[in-house]
């Protein structure tokens, strides 16, 4: 997995490339916690390069969402590949997260 971030307006855009699975989810979790600790509470996850996610990765997204709710933060996802979107749909995560087709729309909402 490769994670890179950039600051755009009020958001930090986190680009995820590769896979999030049982062997590497803690790297993803640490990066999110690092952003939270730095006071970044509005994050757009650009998932265009994410081609695999398992329950370990979904769990990290859910924990992050639970953390941002009380502080009115925003976690937006964008550009999910169809197979990844399907996993989000069947696990009920599509109704937990705001998912956008483009990064522009994710940043505007």
């Amino acid at each position: 997995m490769n994670l890179t971030n950039e600051k755009i307006g009020d958001f930090t855009v986190l680009h995820i490339e590769g896979r999030i699975d049982t062997t590497n989810f803690s790297q993803f979790e640490s990066e999110i916690n690092r952003l939270f600790d730095a006071g970044e509470m509005n994050i757009v996850f650009d998932c265009s390069g994410l081609h695999y996610i398992s329950s370990s990765g979904l769990r990290v997204f859910l924990i992050a969402q639970k953390k941002t709710l009380p502080i009115n933060g925003k976690l937006h996802l964008c550009k999910l590949q169809p197979a990844i979107k399907e996993i989000f749909d069947i696990s009920g995560f599509s109704s937990i997260f705001k998912i956008f087709e483009t990064q522009e729309s994710a940043l505007k909402s």
Partner: peptide, 22 residues
């Protein structure tokens, strides 16, 4: 897991076997 639950009520475990069954 009940996948209809709201974020605050969703437990963080149990998704693995659910994904398999789906």
């Amino acid at each position: 897991p009940d996948v209809e639950l709201k974020t605050e009520d969703r437990p963080v475990g149990g998704l693995g076997i659910f994904l398999i069954s789906k």
